[in-house]
Design a protein around this nucleic acid. Sequence first.
RNA 1: GGUCCGUUCGUCUAUCGGUUAGGACACUAGAUUUUCAUUCUAGGAAGACGAGUUCGAUUCUCGUACGGACUACCA
Length: 520
Amino acid sequence: MERKVRVRFAPSPTGPLHIGGVRTALYNYLFAKKHGGDFILRIEDTDQNRYVQGAEEYIIEALKWSGIQPNEGVGFGDGPFAPYRQSDRMAIYRQYAEKLVATGHAYYAFESSEDLDLLRKKMEAEKSAFSYNSTTRNNLINSLTLASEEVDQRIHEGQDFVIRLLIPINEEVVVHDLIRGEVVVSSSELDDKVLFKSDGMPTYHLANVVDDFLMQITHVIRGEEWLPSAPIHVLLYKYLGWENVMPLFAHLPLLLKPDGNGKLSKRDGDRLGFPVFPLNWTDPATGEMSSGYREKNYIPAAFINMLALLGWHGSGDQEMFSLSELIDIFSLERVSKSGAKFDPEKTKWFNEQYLRHEPITKLANLLKPMVEKKYSYHLNDRRLSNDYLENVVKLLLERVQFEHEFIEKGDYLFESPTTLEEQIILKKWKPEYEVFFSQLVKNFKKTEFFSLTIIEQTIKETATLLQMKPGEIMQLLRVIISGVGMGVDLLGMLELLGKDEVENRIDNGLKMIMQINSAK
RNA sequence: GGUCCGUUCGUCUAUCGGUUAGGACACUAGAUUUUCAUUCUAGGAAGACGAGUUCGAUUCUCGUACGGACUACCA
């Protein structure tokens, strides 16, 4: 019988979710939706030492911001398999570890982690590596070497112990991977992994397999770093008697540094100046802040589109995909095998593309609070009107990549310049231009409508009257109005600012030019 | 060191044995824009290497090189 597709994203709350994690969540989500299945969020917090305050909330918020909605899970409502936080499921794991002991597939081991560290150091000195496996287990202190009475006694006395998986000798373990095909490993290469820790918590290996079974997970889609331990998991399914419902695996390629080689890390973001996290994160221990895509004003859909294409590609040349399009055409078979270097430049490009397709009114609404914050205008100032802001957006839309740039790159649309770009004035200004600009102000005053065509006509007529070429004075006019030599369409800017403002700015500009020239 | 995974333009990638090896980002040049940006056009730019299978390999197999992941009572 075909089982309903159920996948899970199972992060550990050890810090902020990094964009590689978001991508893993995304692929799980897309796969689930594509097949009409469920996507669940499970928090794997079996290591108490690595728990970081606020990390779980961060994961939930990051998924919400990205638009990746689990059907069930921590922070998203309980489903039939609650609870979804492993620390809340503690009671259920031990019985499975004990069951493995009972069936001869696991055993108790009494070495402390310090004992093992010592062994490792010793072996290292002899230029070899220690491994708890078929060659060493018979010389160590465990239920394989101890008499059963002694084992019982040690446990009864409350001695610390762990439960280890008894790896068979020379057995081929096959992992069926949807992306990589069959991966075959000899069991002799595997070590007797700890399944149940002395603190009463399961390790990842046990908890993950048990929960995936109990939560009826059909496909395990996770990062490539898990591939080496996948054979352990396959063995666990087998020994627990769940082989017939073992999920299919898909190990995703890693996200790599933009330059050089290696896994993308937090440090790369700091070093190269781009976020590696979806949201801002402040480390509770150090107070150090890492920037996030949300706070950098990335549009979630653009962020997701970019992530989707890092390691996956459709069959054609299409690159812009909405979430629902992605759901439509996503398939694990088209996930690439090799790691993908992260490209911050292309990420910006995606945002630019998405920004341009946003409705003008929406962008104007986003701009409004930014303007209110930066300038203390009266409530009824025309520069806060929808009409004015929409025109600002139209003037700047093709020159910005982020919404905050509307205000950064268009500051002269909100306030009169206090300085003029001197180099241009010194280079282009001629004394006779003063007459021109004074005349221009007079001619502007006579106009009834301050529209694009009338502005253009007035400038041309004034220039012709004074026997000047419009081309000579256009850039000077720009500098006088905006303070800088480059920017938005000049005539559009004049129209938006309005007649009074333009006249004032020319008057002020002429004064500043006199100062620049006298200081020369 | 061992095990496993990988390798097409600088980067992300298309190609499912036969292509002038395609697209996108970035870059360069030209046109448009009386500025800059946009837009448009053009350009440079790739199958790691060596064998084998085949009429024919980027594509299949093997080896080499290089890169990566893993190698905890962490996930």
